[in-house]
Design a binder for these strands. Structure first.
Lengths: 68, 68
DNA sequence: TTAAAATATACCGATTTGGGATATTTTTTA
DNA sequence: TAAAAAATATCCCAAATCGGTATATTTTAA
């Protein structure tokens, strides 16, 4: 997912993101490297934090299906 | 998530959906009742199967953020 | 109102997760 | 450039979650 890019764009560290979202730094690292899979609620946290759609977060904007 | 509605719209049973997606009927039941949380890849399976965006699947179309 | 189909739940071993600690890498600064 | 600090990745392990089988419950249809 686009987590790393979004975070870098915002210019914050994994630690700050982790604190803001009430998570651990190592969890952020694992999501960014793809070592662990974010679940439903974690995806929503990220999308809300960066103000993007979940489809964008998951790099699925190539098949938009905007109406649904 | 909108899983149950999407499935009913399509007029198929949990069992058929499970078979099509190579999952178990009880897993579908659990996702529909919210007992279990679908991860990243499972969400993508559902979205692709019903041809909807993940944001729609997760009932987040009220804040669309279409460009991102 | 019974039988069949559909859905939900109990149980359990296996997998995955989060968190602390720490190692490694990158950046800063003296 | 070298040392210090910051940022990121990895190890370990207990706890939580998961998938699968079996079965119970509910809904549908004859």
């Amino acid at each position: 997912m686009r987590l790393r890019n979004l975070r870098k764009e915002k210019g914050i560290s994994q630690l700050k993101l982790a604190i803001d979202l009430n998570m651990n730094q190592n969890s952020i690292s694992r999501y960014e490297t793809g070592e662990r899979q974010a679940d439903y609620t974690t995806l929503i946290k990220f999308a809300d934090y960066f103000d993007v759609s979940i489809d964008y977060l998951l790099e699925r904007t190539d098949n938009p299906k905007i109406n649904r």
